[in-house]
């Protein structure tokens, strides 16, 4: 049964995707960039009656998502967002991908052009382990999150939580909510201080809107 399949996926959804799903209200129009096999989309369609669309760069994952009956196109954040009309979505989601796109600032601009809100998660390069590895070894950090060597990592634009806050300010976006989370996506307890979150949060999750 296809319906049963969707529930199964939702139950096993990554924790960070669950946190994202919590931010999205019933019946929203959602674009999930880097939707993978469509777990978040399936969850939103099933549980929140959302109108969910997806973009996925990996052909195998995109095919899996389409085979589930989801509206997913093979494409990528750098090249495909420009073709959507202004305000086409209520929420545009980019999970764990911002650091891997060619032009993060432009992608962010496009997200908030086509969507009223943007939800982003990214690994925090300001985490203490990253800082310590660089300081103590003098070489590019090698951690659970930053696990690929510099010459083959897809993460070409790493940033810290403070860097991201600064860019949001520079381009005039309102930070509606933010969270620091650990590698598994569980909420971390540094909600009050961005500086502490920047030191202890492995992942960051932001909800933005235009001014």
């Amino acid at each position: 049964m296809p319906d049963g399949h969707i529930r199964y996926v939702a139950k096993n959804m990554r924790l960070d995707l669950r946190l994202i799903a919590e931010m999205i209200p019933e019946g929203a129009r959602v674009l999930d960039i880097g939707c993978g096999d469509g777990s978040l989309m399936a969850h939103l369609v099933e549980e929140k009656r959302a109108d969910a669309r997806g973009i996925e760069i990996d052909m195998g994952a995109a095919t899996d998502a389409v085979a589930q009956g989801l509206s997913v196109i093979h494409g990528d954040a750098d090249n495909d967002l420009a073709f959507y009309p202004d305000g086409a979505f209520d929420y545009v989601v980019l999970s764990r991908t911002l650091q891997a796109v060619e032009r993060p600032r432009e992608v962010l601009r496009q997200m908030l052009r086509i969507g009223r809100h943007a939800i982003l998660s990214f690994p925090n390069f300001g985490h203490w382990q990253v800082r310590w590895k660089l300081l103590s070894t003098g070489r590019m950090p090698d951690t659970e999150t930053w696990s690929r060597p510099w010459y083959e990592t897809p993460n070409i634009h790493p940033c810290t939580i403070l860097d991201f806050v600064a860019l949001a300010g520079l381009d005039g976006y309102v930070i509606e909510r933010w969270l620091a989370v650990d590698e598994k996506g569980a909420r971390a307890p540094w909600r009050r201080s961005v500086r502490l979150a920047n030191l202890f949060g492995e992942q960051a999750l932001f909800l933005l809107r235009r001014k």
Binding site: M59, V66, V72, A88
Partner: peptide, 21 residues
């Protein structure tokens, strides 16, 4: 096909697209 998909996106149509290798 990609140009078609982009036009469908511009028309806010619900669209799936795969390129089979």
């Amino acid at each position: 096909s990609r140009a078609l998909v982009r036009a469908l996106n511009a028309a806010a149509a619900r669209t799936s697209f795969v390129e089979i290798t």
